[in-house]
Design a protein around this nucleic acid. Structure first.
Lengths: 221, 221
DNA sequence: TGGCGTCCGTCAGCATGTTGTCAGCTTTGA
DNA sequence: TCAAAGCTGACAACATGCTGACGGACGCCA
């Protein structure tokens, strides 16, 4: 799960990043609104933590723009002090939750977990393509209705692909999703995972488009 | 990828053109709003870089007219100083991104890359001309509805041509698009690719305009 | 603490696909 | 008719992706 932290105060950003990384999220950090808008627009994050007081463009405007453009990832707003108006505006602008500074890190992690759980659960819990089913609630993979044991990494890979079924997903994007771009892995690591997955799921579910990436066909169940 | 630069300050226009050419885009430059409007209306650009302060017609008006006429190419606005109002108006008028002068060339290139990536991703997934269809989501080529296996380079070639259907594309532009001018290739390399493609797609889809380039006719499907 | 199993990145080797080059050919237009 | 432009089949070098083997890291349990 990738999280974007938008926070101009380096100390706060740093401590958030540390805590979330420890909670095994993959974290990117930006410090101004313009950059935030840009990154949120061009990359796929599973959650954004958004401070409102930012250089260049303020947080609320960034959020409004994302929503106007149809970006739907959950956004958790950080408001300074208990400024009630800000909270209301934030919710109006499309925020999913907010947290008042100063806050306990544990509290933040809990909210993050809840938001991600909610957004994952929001889409139907069952993703299917052909004979393959991914149950996102139980984190299980089924072939023709019977469960197949897959490792965590394998699960994240197949669930990402099936989430984007019918579209060729470039290896760079997969690597980014699986590992985050901090500790980049060799393309071969990905290939190895694909091989192991195919062995468990059947050869033809994940197709290779040589030179472009992988795709799970958008077949009716 | 073709980029139109609209900038009345020759020095800036020049340095943009140089940098973008180096980044292997094919660049056209105009210096007033009237000319910009005309070119953007009659030719296919993959991106427009638009300065707001222009002779004859100002940038915002040009942009609004394009949008009113249904032109959808991404537009990156250059605003002088951090004039907030200009930014807001620009976004309202249909700009996709903006950059405040003075800026780093690297920053600009990054934005350009992201905008083009985004627009390729969202543009309608199916490009058609006659019996030919290019599915940009699945990265597949179909003839009369049935898939044809093409190599990555072949795919990029036909998808570029069909993207610019109805227009003669000079070989230099194709070579630039396929290879970037870092490692330039012989014109013959391109001819070889065209030959292989024609063998797979049918002889008459890609027409040669001797002395000028290649064209895919703009036929109804 | 030590033994065991799982997970997963790395490596090397392999198969196959891809593509530039070359040489000779055909077409075109003046 | 001639030269330039473009086409094409063959080929070899290269790139891409797949896979089995290996071993380090980690968690689990006694």
């Amino acid at each position: 799960m990738r999280i974007l932290i938008v926070e101009d105060e380096p100390k706060i950003a740093q401590s958030l990043a540390t805590a979330l990384t420890a909670a095994s999220y993959s974290v990117d950090t930006v410090s101004d609104g313009e950059e935030a808008w840009f990154r949120g627009d061009t990359e796929n994050f599973d959650l954004v933590i958004l401070d409102l007081g930012l250089p260049k463009i303020d947080g609320l405007s960034v959020l409004k723009r994302w929503r106007a453009e149809g970006r739907t990832m959950p956004v958790l707003i950080l408001t300074a002090r208990g400024a009630w108006m800000e909270r209301v505006e934030g919710i109006d602008a499309g925020a999913d939750d907010y947290l008042v500074k100063p806050f306990q890190i544990e509290e933040l992690i809990a909210r993050v977990r809840a938001l991600i759980r909610r957004s994952v659960g929001q889409g139907s819990a069952l993703l299917t393509a052909g004979g393959l089913t991914v149950d996102t609630r139980q984190m299980r993979v089924l072939i023709e209705g019977s469960p197949v044991a897959v490792s965590p990494l394998e699960y994240r890979l197949i669930s990402y692909l099936i989430h984007h079924k019918g579209r060729v997903v470039p290896p760079t994007e997969l690597i980014e999703h699986l590992y985050g771009d901090d500790d980049a892995r060799d393309a071969n690591a990905l290939e190895a995972v694909v091989t192991r997955l195919r062995k468990k799921l059947g050869q033809d579910l994940i197709e290779t488009r040589r030179g472009f990436g992988y795709i799970v066909a958008d077949l009716p169940a």
